[in-house]
Amino acid sequence: MKVADLSQRDMAGLLTGKGLPIQIGPFWINLHSTIPDLLRHVTFFYAGYETTESARFFDFHITLKNAGGLRRWVKPQVHFLLDEYAPFKPLPYIHAFAMFEWGLNWCIATTAHRYLIIHAAVLEKAGRGVIMPGVPGSGKSTLCAAMALRGWRLLSDEMVLLDPATREITPVPRPVSLKNESIGIIRDFSATAEIGPAAEDTAKGTVAHLKPSETSIRLARATSRPHAIVFPKYQADSRTRLTEKAKNSALLEIQENAFNTHILGKVGFESATSLINGCPVFSLEYSQLEEALPIMERLVADSEVPA
């Protein structure tokens, strides 16, 4: 049963009552919220996700609620709760849906230690996965969004869930988070891009989300194999350039970008090493999406890159 199969009224009833179950990648969450913005966010972005009517085990019980006190009349705020625990300070009310997405990232990154969790986007074409780690400002999200709009299957825009034993990547497709200028760039890039409302003045600037394709959501249970790793670097006015990257510095950056390398220890380090050894690693400097995209296409095309 899909979230879309619920009437708007039932959905609101669940969100404010016993919780709305949503399956997001390998995780089941139970979401509680009385905040109208969040109901709209879920209706828009999560309609195609699985839900259930039967009692089950949930990985995360998540609640977003108004902060109480007199303050709510002057400067309304929203709390993110994992079960009854508040890991963050409350945020302004209008940031509720962004907080939900960040909060869920945090839940996964601090819990799902059956995976090596790398801060990177991962997309797939023709059964071949491309991992794109990226520091803020690298243009990772913009490139990821553009690829998703050109028929790539989105596995995640934020986190690679890599199985240390099989080296397969488990998808956790979610709304792609776009920041600041990226929002306009992606609107211009595709007239059909479905982008939600923007939250302004967050810790990360203005944030809006791009809806993943139906295929990406439908194939959320299908794992993928890494075929190449690309470290993107957006550089205004630069020529587009793909260069091979040294394995040692790639490993160092993967370790730095992994959320749980300290917890997985040796197992994590070895799986990062075998990831690096198992596929070619590149740096991609770019300023124009239309120049970067064909390069990404060629990476997964037959015969171009030996796996």
Binding site: R56, H113, H262, I263
Partner: peptide
Amino acid sequence: IPEGPAHHLRAANLITQRSVLA
């Protein structure tokens, strides 16, 4: 132990093993 809870229990165990080393 069903699969769902088992993942969380094993993750907690991993964290403990790591923190012993730390």
